[in-house]
């Protein structure tokens, strides 16, 4: 354990063969699994529009993006497995509700513009969250984040490009884009987690250098990056208190509804039940397939 603390203090990476304190291991499992689950569940709101994408080019882009998300889930589960928990166990915990995924995916995608809003805002927020994680103290997670961030950055740019096309389009397309921003803005700000004075685990995660920036710092950084992008897009962020504060060198913004956040975290968001129902149905419907694969592998060796 002295070696563990020495590695942390020297800002070096912890690797799977190092001795880890149990609490560090559990914290990482919870965080990486939550991240993997978010990629997996996050396929649903976007998948909702895959069959209705309004051009073949958009359909191809969205398909590639959803494929990337499945890929991210795979290597995040892989990173978590280096901590001695297997994927089946994590998936089971997701289904039983004892591990979470990001609250953002419990909101519905109601129009095509939501596909753009998710890529711009949700992937944008994910990037802000994940860039510091590329320097996380746990090696396998940090390395997974480097690749994930590259792909997320592409996702985010195509979202901006999608919204730009709408904003250069018909009045109905512009209205669709604004409506999407109106619905996704506040839930996106909740993605960074509760305010610092109400985030019980943050301090320890900072000490372990799993986390490098606080929830509120990350939220502020996101608002600072995104507010000028909204101006370029010609969209209005639904916050009357949003304005540049010269003295702080940051945007001020209005209060987040943490009551809503708590409600969605605890299972009463608009789509929590449906997201988990679809996931568990896929899992249960696939049981005979996985059984067949296992039986075949027993007879013929792994393929």
């Amino acid at each position: 354990m002295d070696r563990f603390q020495a590695l942390i203090d020297a800002d070096l990476r912890i690797e799977p063969h190092d001795d880890l304190p149990e609490a560090y291991r559990e914290t990482l499992i919870r965080q990486i699994a939550q991240h993997a689950h978010s990629e997996l569940i996050g396929m649903q709101p976007e998948g909702n529009w895959l069959t209705r994408a309004p051009s073949l080019r958009r359909k191809a882009i969205l398909l590639a993006k959803v494929q990337d998300e499945a890929g991210h889930a795979l290597y995040l589960y892989g990173a978590a497995e280096t901590l001695g928990i297997d994927r089946d166990e994590m998936i089971d915990r997701l289904h039983r509700g004892t591990q979470k995924y990001s609250t953002i995916f419990n909101y519905p995608t109601l129009t095509w513009a939501d596909v753009g809003a998710i890529a711009w805002l949700v992937d944008g927020a994910a990037i802000v969250n994940q860039i510091p994680l590329c320097r996380c103290s746990y090696g396998p997670y940090a390395r997974a984040m480097v690749r994930v961030c590259k792909e997320e950055s592409f996702h985010q740019r195509q979202g901006v490009e999608l919204l730009l096309a709408l904003m250069n389009g018909t009045p109905a397309q512009k209205a669709m884009a604004q409506d999407a921003l109106d619905r996704w803005w506040w839930p996106t700000l909740m993605m960074f987690g509760p305010p610092d004075d109400d985030s019980p685990r943050s301090a320890q995660s900072m000490k372990w250098r799993i986390k490098r920036m606080s929830n509120d710092e990350l939220r502020q950084r996101f608002v600072d990056i995104t507010a000028p992008q909204a101006v370029v897009l010609g969209l209005r962020i639904p916050d009357s208190l949003l304005q540049w504060n010269e003295a702080r060198g940051h945007y001020d913004f209005g209060p987040v509804d943490w009551g809503e956040f708590a409600r969605v975290v605890s299972g009463d968001g608009p789509c929590n039940r449906r997201r988990i129902a679809i996931r568990t149905a896929a899992h249960e419907d696939g049981q005979w397939v996985r059984d067949a694969s296992a039986a075949y592998a027993t007879k013929h060796g792994p393929t």
Partner: peptide, 16 residues
């Protein structure tokens, strides 16, 4: 149409 309903995550990637 099969996506998010595949029997394994690997298969989600393959189908996509």
């Amino acid at each position: 149409e099969c996506l998010t309903h595949a029997p394994e995550i690997e298969e989600e990637v393959a189908l996509a």
